[in-house]
Amino acid sequence: MAEGPATDIVLRVTGLKRYFDVSAPFLNRLLSGSGRQILKAVDGVDFEIARGQTFSIVGESGCGKSTIARLIVGLHQPSGGEIEFEGNAISAESSRKAMAPFRKKLQMIFQDPYASLNPRWRVFDIIAEPIRAYDLIDNNADIAERVGELLSHVGLNPKDGVKYPHEFSGGQRQRISIARALASEPEFLVCDEPTSALDVSVQAQILNLMKQLQRDFRLTYLFISHNLAVVYHISDHVAVMYLGRICEVADKKTLFRRPLHPYTRLLLDTIPDLGMTGRERSPVAGEVPNPINPPGGCAFHPRCPHANDRCRTERPEPIKVPGGRVACHAVEENRIPQETERPLPDEET
């Protein structure tokens, strides 16, 4: 983990917001007398990622983690806030043309390798598409050589280029998606649940490959996942999201060893874990509320054992703590009993 002054920040996100209008059609609204409904998928998020690091966002479905991924690669326009890539603002104002040089440096790997590859294209064309789109190489022989090289980087045979996606297993397809993402020589990869659709033994292969590529090409990753064990394995820094906001962000060791936010603690307490054989757990009641109409104050207060009146009315802003930031009144006011440091399994014996 890189310590000291974070010099080379690749991506900085400040006050990022994305709202979706989920209102009923105009006439229905008129007839029922209901107003517009706005879903605040991402509601004021700040973070920064240093070069060569892996920054992960974890959270349950609907917390806004995938929306952030899509905002960063430009699949959504932000409703507010700034995204800075290598010091350049890449927000709504920039024209497509102005964006082009940054786009190729920012690539994305999607969750479902069955849906993200065009079934009618040969693997060769799938991987060559970014090379052609960005005019990186202009003669066909060199493109062929480059595609072969990319296929071997991801552990496939250069001859596999003539096949179609359906001839590959899920893990191999994810390798093809990675090869396509690498084709434009990116510096930054946004990985949205890249292993969630895979079996564990295949997941291990892909995670190992991603770490290998990160070392070889000095890639920076934004890794989105709901699987905390995977996140622990791959990340340097971790942000925990709940209903569109980051409730805690810290370096990996700090977050997993001394989680501060009650929601982080809940998540860590509830994960089914191999080390848990035969142990009883106390499940936490409650569910993620409807994001269209989130609770006031701190969105987590209805499920929080430490909530008081302030939590119900005033939204907590992130405060600095050793190792990271946390948005919680109870932590700020020191209302949460200090937890003994969590023994990580390897330290148990």
């Binding site: 564990v200 995670l207 905390l228 622990y232 394995h233 791959i234 994960i271 874990d273 990580l344 399994p345």
Partner: peptide
């Protein structure tokens, strides 16, 4: 192999 391929928190 299966057990080894599962990432674990703290490992």
């Amino acid at each position: 192999g299966l057990m080894g391929s599962i990432p674990m928190i703290g490992e």
